[in-house]
Amino acid sequence: MAETVPVKSAGIHRDRFAQLTIYIAAFMVCAAFVWILSDIVRGGVAHLSWSFLVDAPRDAGRAGGIGPILVSTVLVLLVALTAALPLGWMTAALLAEYVSADSTFGSAVRYSLQVLAGVPSIVFGLFGNAFFSIYLGMGFSILSGGLTLACMLLPILVSTGEAGLRAVPDAYRLSAAALGMSRKTTLFHLLLPAAAPSLAAGLLLGIGRAVAETAALLFTSGYVDRMPGSLLDSGRTLAIHIFDLSMNVSGGDASAHASALVLITALLLINIAAMRLTAGWQRRKIVPE
């Protein structure tokens, strides 16, 4: 096609150059990703086995597996979600449904969440240590770590939840009200289900963020690598395990790589799920009512 249109050759060269630059940039992004991934796979895949997934770590993690660490990771995540989901989604419902978009209270809540979203995670860690571990006496525990993570997840859950609820057409609210349905029924039976895809997307984003977190957990859930007996025990999460192996344990590289491989696979699966959900949601929004 290009040949049939008379174009000055300088223009063509400029075009080619721009195209090349774009391709190189894209290639570098992909290369970085592939490099990280291949490094982890190369270093870790040999070490990976069923017993690696279920055994307890031995010799500071150089040998053995990551069984207790997976358990602690899941427990921290569950504590975080149990605390953050109801709080986050109820706040989202409050902002989207019960206060007007430009009210002072709403803007104040929204602003504080924005600030919270920008706070570095190490600061969350220090706060969690001071508040949950020391002030509330939870010590270094899964509970304390989970609650600290919950504070970090709130901004994500609230903003995705609010956006999802606001995307629900007003016609539903008006016709529900015209049918004499209470606001509560409307919220729980119509609006939240209609916003479910974006709530789920926010949930998965939050899980990804939580699973990858180290700094906020260093001073809260700690890094004891035994199998936790209760939520008040300290527990080492996967991300911290990787950090510890590569920073403090010489000869722990193979284990670190294998753990990273497990973590990345889990994150990848979560992301794929999130993407599919979001795509499904967008498709549904585009389809005419």
Binding site: A176, L179, M181, L190
Partner: peptide, 24 residues
Amino acid sequence: GMVFQKPTPFPVSISRNIELPLHE
């Protein structure tokens, strides 16, 4: 009862559309 200019069914099943206000 009110019927709007544009049809406004809820994004749920046909029967649930009628059930929801009845339950309330």
